[in-house]
Design a binder for these strands. Structure first.
Lengths: 118, 118
DNA sequence: GCAAGGAGTTACCCGATGGTGAGTACCCCG
DNA sequence: CGGGGTACTCACCATCGGGTAACTCCTTGC
Protein backbone atom coordinates (compact mmCIF):
# COMPACT_ATOMS: atom_id res chain seq x y z
CA UNK A 1 0.00 0.00 0.00
CA UNK A 2 1.07 3.51 -0.69
CA UNK A 3 -0.70 5.10 2.23
CA UNK A 4 0.86 6.49 5.37
CA UNK A 5 -1.34 5.53 8.30
CA UNK A 6 0.80 7.10 11.00
CA UNK A 7 3.60 9.33 9.75
CA UNK A 8 6.89 7.99 10.93
CA UNK A 9 8.69 10.14 13.51
CA UNK A 10 11.57 10.87 11.16
CA UNK A 11 9.24 12.96 9.08
CA UNK A 12 8.21 15.20 11.87
CA UNK A 13 11.42 17.18 11.67
CA UNK A 14 10.11 18.08 8.24
CA UNK A 15 6.32 18.32 8.26
CA UNK A 16 6.23 19.20 4.58
CA UNK A 17 7.30 15.64 3.89
CA UNK A 18 4.18 14.29 5.54
CA UNK A 19 2.00 16.10 3.04
CA UNK A 20 4.20 15.17 0.13
CA UNK A 21 4.02 11.49 0.98
CA UNK A 22 0.24 11.59 0.78
CA UNK A 23 0.23 13.29 -2.55
CA UNK A 24 3.24 11.95 -4.39
CA UNK A 25 2.88 9.22 -6.91
CA UNK A 26 2.72 9.55 -10.64
CA UNK A 27 -1.04 10.04 -10.73
CA UNK A 28 -2.21 11.10 -7.31
CA UNK A 29 -2.17 14.82 -7.92
CA UNK A 30 -3.84 14.28 -11.26
CA UNK A 31 -6.60 12.29 -9.60
CA UNK A 32 -7.06 15.00 -7.00
CA UNK A 33 -6.90 17.70 -9.63
CA UNK A 34 -9.60 16.05 -11.62
CA UNK A 35 -11.83 15.43 -8.63
CA UNK A 36 -11.67 19.11 -7.73
CA UNK A 37 -14.24 19.65 -10.45
CA UNK A 38 -16.60 17.26 -8.73
CA UNK A 39 -16.92 13.57 -8.01
CA UNK A 40 -16.29 10.95 -10.64
CA UNK A 41 -16.54 7.22 -11.15
CA UNK A 42 -13.70 4.81 -11.74
CA UNK A 43 -14.27 4.79 -15.48
CA UNK A 44 -14.56 8.57 -15.64
CA UNK A 45 -11.16 8.86 -14.07
CA UNK A 46 -9.62 6.30 -16.41
CA UNK A 47 -10.95 8.17 -19.39
CA UNK A 48 -9.84 11.48 -17.98
CA UNK A 49 -6.30 10.23 -17.58
CA UNK A 50 -5.24 8.26 -20.63
CA UNK A 51 -2.23 6.17 -19.80
CA UNK A 52 -3.16 5.05 -16.32
CA UNK A 53 -3.91 1.39 -15.85
CA UNK A 54 -6.79 0.01 -13.85
CA UNK A 55 -4.38 -1.48 -11.37
CA UNK A 56 -2.55 1.71 -10.61
CA UNK A 57 -5.72 3.76 -10.49
CA UNK A 58 -7.17 1.32 -7.96
CA UNK A 59 -4.01 1.49 -5.88
CA UNK A 60 -3.96 5.27 -5.87
CA UNK A 61 -7.64 5.59 -5.07
CA UNK A 62 -7.33 3.06 -2.26
CA UNK A 63 -4.41 5.01 -0.83
CA UNK A 64 -6.20 8.33 -1.03
CA UNK A 65 -9.28 6.86 0.60
CA UNK A 66 -7.20 5.15 3.27
CA UNK A 67 -5.53 8.47 4.03
CA UNK A 68 -8.93 10.08 4.41
CA UNK A 69 -8.59 12.52 1.55
CA UNK A 70 -11.23 10.93 -0.65
CA UNK A 71 -14.54 9.30 0.07
CA UNK A 72 -15.91 6.35 -1.86
CA UNK A 73 -19.65 5.92 -2.27
CA UNK A 74 -21.09 2.83 -3.86
CA UNK A 75 -24.56 2.89 -5.31
CA UNK A 76 -26.68 0.60 -7.40
CA UNK A 77 -28.12 2.31 -10.42
CA UNK A 78 -30.58 -0.19 -11.75
CA UNK A 79 -28.56 -3.21 -10.81
CA UNK A 80 -25.16 -1.97 -11.95
CA UNK A 81 -22.64 -1.05 -9.32
CA UNK A 82 -21.49 2.54 -9.51
CA UNK A 83 -18.64 3.76 -7.41
CA UNK A 84 -18.22 7.47 -6.93
CA UNK A 85 -15.08 9.10 -5.69
CA UNK A 86 -15.04 12.60 -4.28
CA UNK A 87 -13.15 14.72 -1.81
CA UNK A 88 -13.94 14.05 1.81
CA UNK A 89 -14.49 17.00 4.13
CA UNK A 90 -10.98 16.47 5.36
CA UNK A 91 -9.72 16.27 1.80
CA UNK A 92 -11.16 19.69 1.11
CA UNK A 93 -8.75 21.19 3.59
CA UNK A 94 -5.94 20.11 1.29
CA UNK A 95 -7.25 22.02 -1.68
CA UNK A 96 -5.69 25.37 -0.79
CA UNK A 97 -2.37 23.59 -0.50
CA UNK A 98 -2.83 21.94 -3.87
CA UNK A 99 -3.70 25.33 -5.30
CA UNK A 100 -0.52 26.79 -3.91
CA UNK A 101 1.45 23.94 -5.48
CA UNK A 102 -0.47 24.43 -8.67
CA UNK A 103 0.03 28.13 -9.10
CA UNK A 104 3.71 27.95 -8.24
CA UNK A 105 4.08 25.05 -10.65
CA UNK A 106 2.32 26.92 -13.40
CA UNK A 107 4.61 29.85 -12.92
CA UNK A 108 7.62 27.56 -12.92
CA UNK A 109 6.50 25.89 -16.12
CA UNK A 110 6.25 29.24 -17.88
CA UNK A 111 9.61 30.27 -16.58
CA UNK A 112 11.23 27.00 -17.66
CA UNK A 113 9.51 27.00 -21.04
CA UNK A 114 11.45 29.97 -22.34
CA UNK A 115 14.96 30.42 -21.07
CA UNK A 116 16.75 28.45 -18.39
CA UNK A 117 16.94 30.51 -15.17
CA UNK A 118 17.32 34.10 -16.36
CA UNK B 1 19.28 13.09 -12.86
CA UNK B 2 16.28 13.84 -10.77
CA UNK B 3 15.71 17.33 -12.10
CA UNK B 4 12.96 18.42 -14.43
CA UNK B 5 14.51 20.82 -16.92
CA UNK B 6 11.41 21.46 -18.96
CA UNK B 7 8.23 20.05 -17.45
CA UNK B 8 6.75 17.54 -19.83
CA UNK B 9 3.45 18.61 -21.40
CA UNK B 10 1.54 15.83 -19.68
CA UNK B 11 2.10 17.57 -16.39
CA UNK B 12 0.58 20.82 -17.46
CA UNK B 13 -2.91 19.46 -17.05
CA UNK B 14 -1.89 19.25 -13.41
CA UNK B 15 0.44 22.08 -12.47
CA UNK B 16 0.69 20.84 -8.90
CA UNK B 17 2.65 17.91 -10.24
CA UNK B 18 5.31 20.22 -11.61
CA UNK B 19 6.03 21.51 -8.13
CA UNK B 20 5.89 18.09 -6.57
CA UNK B 21 8.41 16.70 -9.02
CA UNK B 22 10.90 19.34 -7.97
CA UNK B 23 10.42 18.67 -4.31
CA UNK B 24 9.73 14.98 -4.00
CA UNK B 25 12.45 12.63 -3.08
CA UNK B 26 13.20 11.18 0.28
CA UNK B 27 15.48 14.01 1.35
CA UNK B 28 14.73 17.01 -0.81
CA UNK B 29 12.22 18.64 1.50
CA UNK B 30 14.48 17.94 4.43
CA UNK B 31 17.37 19.64 2.65
CA UNK B 32 15.18 22.62 1.86
CA UNK B 33 13.76 22.64 5.34
CA UNK B 34 17.22 22.74 6.82
CA UNK B 35 18.46 25.42 4.46
CA UNK B 36 15.56 27.65 5.44
CA UNK B 37 17.54 28.48 8.57
CA UNK B 38 20.42 29.71 6.43
CA UNK B 39 23.05 28.35 4.09
CA UNK B 40 25.11 25.29 4.90
CA UNK B 41 28.00 23.30 3.57
CA UNK B 42 27.93 19.73 2.29
CA UNK B 43 29.19 18.34 5.55
CA UNK B 44 26.80 20.43 7.61
CA UNK B 45 23.92 18.93 5.71
CA UNK B 46 25.23 15.38 6.11
CA UNK B 47 25.52 15.89 9.83
CA UNK B 48 22.11 17.51 10.02
CA UNK B 49 20.48 14.54 8.34
CA UNK B 50 21.84 11.31 9.76
CA UNK B 51 21.08 8.47 7.39
CA UNK B 52 21.67 10.22 4.11
CA UNK B 53 24.62 9.04 2.06
CA UNK B 54 27.05 11.31 0.29
CA UNK B 55 25.87 10.03 -3.05
CA UNK B 56 22.24 10.79 -2.50
CA UNK B 57 22.97 14.15 -0.94
CA UNK B 58 25.05 15.08 -3.97
CA UNK B 59 22.30 13.94 -6.31
CA UNK B 60 19.64 15.90 -4.49
CA UNK B 61 21.72 19.03 -4.23
CA UNK B 62 22.63 18.82 -7.91
CA UNK B 63 18.98 18.46 -8.80
CA UNK B 64 17.90 21.37 -6.62
CA UNK B 65 20.65 23.55 -8.06
CA UNK B 66 19.81 22.46 -11.62
CA UNK B 67 16.20 23.37 -10.99
CA UNK B 68 17.28 26.79 -9.83
CA UNK B 69 15.98 26.46 -6.28
CA UNK B 70 19.38 26.45 -4.62
CA UNK B 71 22.59 28.27 -5.34
CA UNK B 72 26.03 26.76 -4.85
CA UNK B 73 28.91 29.01 -3.93
CA UNK B 74 32.44 27.68 -3.79
CA UNK B 75 35.05 29.54 -1.85
CA UNK B 76 38.58 28.86 -0.78
CA UNK B 77 39.12 29.40 2.91
CA UNK B 78 42.84 29.28 3.26
CA UNK B 79 43.40 26.65 0.61
CA UNK B 80 40.52 24.39 1.53
CA UNK B 81 37.52 24.25 -0.74
CA UNK B 82 34.28 25.16 0.95
CA UNK B 83 30.98 24.75 -0.82
CA UNK B 84 27.98 26.61 0.47
CA UNK B 85 24.42 25.82 -0.44
CA UNK B 86 21.61 28.30 0.08
CA UNK B 87 18.28 29.24 -1.37
CA UNK B 88 18.42 31.18 -4.60
CA UNK B 89 16.19 34.20 -5.03
CA UNK B 90 13.94 32.00 -7.07
CA UNK B 91 14.04 29.31 -4.43
CA UNK B 92 12.76 31.80 -1.88
CA UNK B 93 9.52 32.04 -3.80
CA UNK B 94 8.92 28.39 -2.98
CA UNK B 95 9.12 28.90 0.76
CA UNK B 96 5.49 29.95 1.25
CA UNK B 97 4.47 26.81 -0.60
CA UNK B 98 6.70 24.67 1.60
CA UNK B 99 5.20 26.36 4.63
CA UNK B 100 1.73 25.51 3.40
CA UNK B 101 2.78 21.89 2.95
CA UNK B 102 4.42 21.98 6.34
CA UNK B 103 1.55 23.34 8.34
CA UNK B 104 -0.96 21.06 6.69
CA UNK B 105 1.37 18.14 7.29
CA UNK B 106 1.83 19.04 10.92
CA UNK B 107 -1.90 19.17 11.37
CA UNK B 108 -2.29 15.85 9.60
CA UNK B 109 0.35 14.25 11.79
CA UNK B 110 -1.49 15.32 14.94
CA UNK B 111 -4.76 14.10 13.56
CA UNK B 112 -3.30 10.73 12.59
CA UNK B 113 -1.39 10.35 15.83
CA UNK B 114 -4.53 9.94 17.93
CA UNK B 115 -7.50 8.35 16.26
CA UNK B 116 -7.92 7.34 12.64
CA UNK B 117 -10.22 9.84 10.88
CA UNK B 118 -12.59 11.01 13.59
C1' DG C 1 54.33 9.48 7.33
C1' DC C 2 49.66 9.07 8.45
C1' DA C 3 45.18 10.21 10.17
C1' DA C 4 41.43 13.29 9.58
C1' DG C 5 38.26 16.46 7.47
C1' DG C 6 36.09 18.54 3.32
C1' DA C 7 33.75 17.42 -1.02
C1' DG C 8 32.62 14.45 -3.80
C1' DT C 9 32.73 10.02 -7.46
C1' DT C 10 32.13 5.23 -8.91
C1' DA C 11 30.30 0.58 -9.17
C1' DC C 12 27.01 -2.33 -7.63
C1' DC C 13 22.61 -3.90 -5.31
C1' DC C 14 17.77 -3.92 -3.74
C1' DG C 15 12.94 -2.94 -3.16
C1' DA C 16 9.08 -0.01 -4.21
C1' DT C 17 6.49 1.97 -7.88
C1' DG C 18 4.35 1.58 -11.86
C1' DG C 19 3.14 -0.86 -16.46
C1' DT C 20 1.08 -5.08 -19.15
C1' DG C 21 -2.17 -8.31 -20.23
C1' DA C 22 -5.29 -11.38 -18.93
C1' DG C 23 -9.19 -12.77 -16.17
C1' DT C 24 -13.42 -12.14 -12.97
C1' DA C 25 -18.30 -10.94 -12.08
C1' DC C 26 -22.43 -8.67 -13.12
C1' DC C 27 -25.54 -6.28 -16.13
C1' DC C 28 -27.78 -4.07 -20.39
C1' DC C 29 -28.64 -3.77 -25.44
C1' DG C 30 -29.57 -5.37 -30.17
C1' DC D 1 -25.64 -14.90 -28.36
C1' DG D 2 -22.06 -11.41 -28.88
C1' DG D 3 -20.34 -6.90 -27.74
C1' DG D 4 -19.86 -3.32 -24.48
C1' DG D 5 -19.89 -1.01 -20.04
C1' DT D 6 -18.80 -0.81 -14.73
C1' DA D 7 -15.32 -2.09 -11.44
C1' DC D 8 -11.98 -4.42 -10.33
C1' DT D 9 -8.13 -8.45 -9.21
C1' DC D 10 -3.98 -11.22 -10.34
C1' DA D 11 0.59 -12.60 -11.97
C1' DC D 12 4.40 -11.06 -13.92
C1' DC D 13 8.01 -7.44 -15.43
C1' DA D 14 10.80 -3.26 -15.88
C1' DT D 15 12.51 0.84 -14.28
C1' DC D 16 14.40 3.91 -11.02
C1' DG D 17 15.26 6.04 -6.60
C1' DG D 18 17.83 5.21 -2.91
C1' DG D 19 21.45 2.53 -0.02
C1' DT D 20 26.38 0.61 0.60
C1' DA D 21 31.09 0.57 0.33
C1' DA D 22 35.04 1.76 -1.59
C1' DC D 23 37.90 5.17 -3.81
C1' DT D 24 39.65 9.92 -5.42
C1' DC D 25 41.80 14.46 -4.52
C1' DC D 26 43.39 18.11 -1.69
C1' DT D 27 45.02 20.31 2.62
C1' DT D 28 46.01 20.76 7.61
C1' DG D 29 47.85 18.96 11.87
C1' DC D 30 50.40 15.46 15.05
Amino acid sequence: MVSTPVPDPKMLDCPALVTIQLVSGKWKTRVLWHLRQGGAGFGDLRRAMPGISAKVLTEHLDALVADGLLARTESLEGKVLHTRYRFSDYGFTLIPVLDALGSWGLNHAERAAGHRFP
